[in-house]
Amino acid sequence: MSRNGPLALIFHTVFVIVMVAPILVVCLVAFTPEGFLSLPTNGFSLRWFRTIANYPEFIHAFWVSLGLGALSSLVALLFAVPAALAIARYRFRGRDALAALFLSPLMIPHVVLGIAFLRFFTSAGLGGTFAALIVAHVIIVFPFALRLTLAAATGMDRTVEMAAVSLGAGGWTLFRRVTLPLILPGVISGWALAFIQSFDDLTMTVFLAAPGTETLPVRMFLYIQDNIDPLVTSVSACVIAITMTALILLDRIYGLDRVLAGKGDTGR
């Protein structure tokens, strides 16, 4: 394959700088020793990271986000894995419509989902509860959980299962000993991607969260609406660091391009 010319490389460099700049600037400002927004020109300081400790609402919001992401992704998988197996293996009437329905939360604007859930849960008397947040997040992360599981199930060699059946495995044993291990990379990646989506969601959650159930993005957003100061940059820096760690892990387990594209096989 031919090489990129100098013009292409200049374009690429500028492109990457612009892509990274906003993220970098947040992380840099977080280390400022000053009491106001500024790039750390006179050395780095951790004072704004220590300040987070004085704002328990951020810490509480972090735990809410973490629990919400972990739980809703798990619940989404419990529904998505069987559905993915059905869609991957059977040609049945209504299959395409079902797949479209399950992926539809990707297409529906999150504002609309937020409004719909707000209306729904308020009428059900569950407005602002953690349970309502879980259910809402299950819906928005479901497509991600489904897509990666589906890719793994579709890429799986069906004769491996036939072999297991011919050797006497059936039902639950077949699933536990053969099917699940084979699609596991897809399932784990689906969980991770779903977690990140849940962890990052602002638009829908901002409608649903009440003071006790505010997630980290919601808390940050509300804080920024009042004023932007170095505190929110240090919180953002922490969020970025956590996401980056998850990202690198995900890349190692499964390959990031495959996770993001939601396609690929199980690597046979």
Binding site: P22, L24, I240
Partner: peptide, 18 residues
């Protein structure tokens, strides 16, 4: 380039605000 996709939109927009 694709990584930012998974980084909080709030954090990324905050970067532009800065």
């Amino acid at each position: 380039i694709l990584g930012p996709l998974l980084i909080s939109v709030v954090a990324r927009t905050l970067g532009w605000a800065l």
